[in-house]
Design a protein around this nucleic acid. Structure first.
Lengths: 257, 257
DNA sequence: CGAGCATTTGAAAGCTGTCAATTCCGGTGG
DNA sequence: CCACCGGAATTGACAGCTTTCAAATGCTCG
């Protein structure tokens, strides 16, 4: 079960800056065009936020007036049922896009976004998005690609939650995030930071915290990975992929051209 | 478990026609602009297909060279694991969009699409899509909205599969498809056609056929619905919504502006 | 050092799956 | 029009994976 949600802390606004400073390449929506369209940059200047761990960027049902590109840190996307059951639908990493919905002016957002670590965001007012797409079709296309990628990932997890065993699901989660993190940070490290509690892992793959703990023990005993104290090590990617029924040949997450 | 997949039948090509004849309003990607942009219509003329029930439109791993708008009939979107386990990720209804992926030229498709009934499709070559977005940004925006809607639905199901009981999940599936079908057909009927087997329902909500059957019996006894012989009747939407933990106030599927 | 959250672990209950057999039903051929 | 056929729907019994409930231990931060 999800832990009690914390009250929303006021977002601390940081330096007003355009997104040229974004450290992420190839994924962010607002970044790569900046140089080529200074006029646009002037007009749609975006804002940068810094928020502490565990705070919410927005909550289900709200009407956030901005869209966000995650620059730094980890964010958890989730939904809850009235009785508190929680389902994590996405672990967002730097470069990911947050807060989108079809018609931002009319629809409330259908999920919550909570920082797992201190987070840096690039914010963009929703009012401008429509005009931005009209003025810069290449951004629309990028957005479509980002969505296609996120959708594929969502379906992949859906398959896991619906049809895989506990061991397969958990191994999948760990490996998927591991590979995605390495891709985003352009790293080959065996060990990565992993700021996700066992309860959150459970909510991501549809299992209880207790069962996650037991399953983690089994996975550890396989010798292929290690997951503790906010760190994840995967020693044998092939082996974990086998356990997870993870098709390494068809990686979903690649940089969206 | 999924039944054996049938071999792909050759697609029978129908009349070559643009999409102005599409009976669906407000959802299709290629339809509403036709009148306003005859020049575009000329250039990106699309093709219409008719295929029989149970045939595949495309399969996981293929590289379909067209994108489709579903004009008529029901289509099931699913993924499978090597050992045959299947997860249905979407029941597509008329007006839905099929076959999209981030970079159609490079990526294979990550799911299969199978007709549940005889189906009419409007096909559009993938080669043209990029240019089309560039030339007609309003189509890109429509596409983004369609994706946003599909994504929200996917997350909604994910929540169900991960966190809800068998009864809740099944009731959700039935009600969700029921409401979506009525919206698409602009109907208020109590009974709708429902060409989905119990096995397929199971694969959609992560349960076995046997358990679907038992759960269906329970739901029937509640008196709120009836589901048999390819038909679904929902007599008490409120009641089913309660059982399903379905938030009626926040309907996901609306016509994408 | 204490408090609060996160991690572990054990035991038992329960929901869902598996296995198998039967019945139902729509479509086909005689 | 009727018997037959194959897929779909049902049903019973039982196994098993996960959850639930409880309690102990470990860890991090103020």
């Amino acid at each position: 079960m999800a832990s009690k949600l914390r009250s929303r802390l006021p977002v601390r606004e940081g330096n007003h800056t355009n997104c040229e400073s974004c450290p992420i390449r190839g994924n962010a929506l607002f970044e790569p065009v900046a140089k080529e369209h200074l006029d646009w940059t002037q007009q749609y200047r975006s804002t940068q936020y810094q928020i502490p761990a565990k705070t919410h960027i927005y909550r289900e049902g709200e009407h956030p007036q901005e869209l966000f590109t995650l620059f730094e840190g980890w964010v958890m996307i989730y939904k809850t049922l009235p009785d508190g059951r929680r389902q994590v639908s996405r672990i967002a990493l730097p470069g990911d896009f947050l807060g989108f919905r079809g018609r931002p002016d009319q629809e409330s957002i259908n999920h919550s976004a909570q920082a797992l670590t201190p987070v840096t965001l690039c914010a963009f007012p929703v009012d401008g998005i429509r005009q931005m797409f009209a003025t810069h079709p290449e951004l629309a296309e990028r957005m479509i690609n980002i969505h296609a990628r996120d959708m594929a990932l969502c379906q992949e997890y859906m398959m896991g939650i619906g049809r895989k065993s506990a061991e397969e699901r958990l191994a999948f989660l760990l490996l998927e995030v591991f590979l995605r993190y390495r891709e985003r940070t352009n790293s080959q490290a065996t060990t990565i930071p992993f700021p996700i509690t066992q309860e959150e892992m459970g909510d991501a793959v549809g299992l209880t915290m207790v069962h996650i703990n037991r399953t983690l023990k089994v996975l550890r005993k396989s010798g292929a990975l290690e997951c503790s104290s906010r760190q994840l090590s995967i020693f044998d990617i092939q082996k974990v992929a086998e356990i997870a029924q993870f098709d390494l040949s068809n990686r979903i997450d690649r940089h969206v051209a």
